[in-house]
């Protein structure tokens, strides 16, 4: 049975991301980005790569905090650094670039909780990427139907705009969705996801 965890005081960083608190977001960049930059540069990457990885990690945290109610039960810095590290390792692997020689966390005292939370967040971010990649690979017709269907417009209006009947739109959308889900399921393990 899991023991309920208390929110860490660093939850303020997550709140700042969700509320677009520009001052605290500036603080996040100021305090934490240089270690990530250093790590990426020491491991076959550029400052631009580091900027991408850092931004991606913040977006993933934002998405989890805003849309899935993520609460931080560990300190923010090692959590963020671990996510960045995981992302960069994955990048290196994808591009067959040389592996990590210098570790980001060698001097940090990182708890099990942090590893767990960071791994979970990385996996969620990666899943979003997989969803988007598989969606982008679909035929234009399915992409169009899914895109319009997910807009907040009434579906009758969408059907009219697409020049099809409502019944056809519904049937086609569920076919397209089924195809998309099948391709996602086929690729989950290739992407290192469960």
């Amino acid at each position: 049975m899991s023991i309920p965890k208390h929110k860490h005081e660093d939850q303020r960083y997550l709140d700042a991301l969700v509320n677009n608190d520009t001052r605290v977001i500036g603080e996040i960049y100021h305090r934490f980005s240089q270690r990530v930059r250093h790590f990426v540069q020491q491991n076959n990457g550029s400052a631009d790569d580091a900027a991408d990885i850092f931004q991606e990690a913040l977006v993933d945290i934002y998405n989890q905090a805003r849309f899935k109610g993520l609460e931080l039960t560990c300190p923010f810095e090692p959590f963020l650094l671990l996510i960045c590290k995981r992302k960069w390792l994955n990048e290196l692997k994808k591009n067959n670039r040389r592996g990590v020689t210098i570790d980001i966390d060698e001097q940090s005292n990182i708890g099990e909780d942090t590893f767990f939370l960071a791994e979970q967040l990385w996996a969620d971010g990666e899943k979003t990427k997989l969803f988007k990649a598989m969606f982008a690979q679909m035929g234009e017709r399915c992409q169009e139907i899914i895109r319009w269907s997910l807009s907040n417009k009434p579906q009758e209006e969408v059907a009219a705009a697409l020049g099809v009947t409502y019944g056809y739109l519904r049937k086609k959308k569920s076919e397209c969705m089924a195809g998309l889900i099948a391709s996602i399921n086929t690729n989950l393990s290739k992407w290192g996801l469960k």
Binding site: N20, T22, S33, V36, A47, A50, V59, R66, F67, L150
Partner: peptide, 27 residues
């Protein structure tokens, strides 16, 4: 997920702008 990614609301867009404005401090 697709809805969020395909139709980002104003808050998401404002957040992305904030991140973009700090990108230079890393790169």
């Amino acid at each position: 997920t697709l809805h969020r990614e395909l139709f980002p609301d104003q808050r998401q867009q404002a957040f992305m702008q904030t991140l973009a404005s700090h990108r230079g401090s890393v790169a």
